[in-house]
């Protein structure tokens, strides 16, 4: 083994001296430049549609909570300090009276964050919980996004406890826990908002 290794090393060393470093650097630089250009162009092309999609997803979720007639207040609601939520939306009835606050929360699920909106009514009780995105196990944890499951949150308020106030989905305790944690985070945020 050892005897074989030596001559191999020598032959391997020879081309090392003749590696065309300048050519490699120039070539990679050129390829990276072309790729950066392509990426920049795609980014500019897709920037607006992606932002519009994001906005449409939020708006349709808010519509499902507050009905088609509710209007999203243009003014952004500042998130109170120390509250771990993504955004707060103020919804108004067509006559201008506030319909309630909706809080968007990311809650750590079984495999990734569950992106959800908790909609509160004017009386601070939960109007509806909407899941925007989740990547829980299909057929198991993903069932927490089902309408029938989320329906049990409607009308409740205050800090909720799993298996007491809210049923868990058997075999998907972690995902059920993630949803209730998110809802409680939103409730705390609403309390901090002082409404």
């Amino acid at each position: 083994m050892k005897k074989n290794k030596k001559p191999e090393k020598q032959t391997a060393e020879k081309p090392v001296a003749s590696i065309p470093y300048v050519k490699i650097v120039l070539c990679l630089f050129l390829i990276c430049t072309i790729c950066a250009g392509l990426l920049g162009a795609t980014f500019l092309l897709t920037k607006d549609p992606i932002a519009a999609n994001e906005k449409a997803t939020i708006e349709s979720a808010l519509k499902r909570i507050y009905g088609d007639k509710a209007v999203l207040d243009d003014e952004a609601v500042p998130v109170p300090e120390g509250q771990n939520v993504e955004a707060i939306y103020l919804l108004r009835n067509p006559d201008g009276a506030p319909a309630g606050y909706a809080v968007r929360v990311l809650s750590a699920g079984f495999s990734a964050d569950i992106d959800m909106i908790v909609g509160f009514g004017a009386d601070s009780s939960i109007r509806k919980v909407e899941i925007i995105a989740l990547s829980e196990t299909a057929g198991l944890g993903s069932r927490v996004a089902e309408e029938e499951y989320l329906a049990q949150y409607i009308g409740s308020s205050g800090e909720l406890v799993l298996k007491e106030d809210i049923d868990a989905i058997s075999g998907a305790t972690k995902s059920s826990k993630a949803v209730i944690n998110g809802v409680n985070t939103a409730t705390r945020c609403l309390a901090a908002l002082g409404v």
Binding site: T42, L45, P49, I50
Partner: peptide
């Protein structure tokens, strides 16, 4: 290195295009 740069460029492009047009 060159292959990976090229491949990741196209993957990112497809990812962005899907996000924009097939969300």
């Amino acid at each position: 290195a060159a292959f990976i740069v090229v491949i990741s460029t196209f993957v990112t492009m497809v990812d962005l295009l899907l996000k924009a047009y097939l969300p």
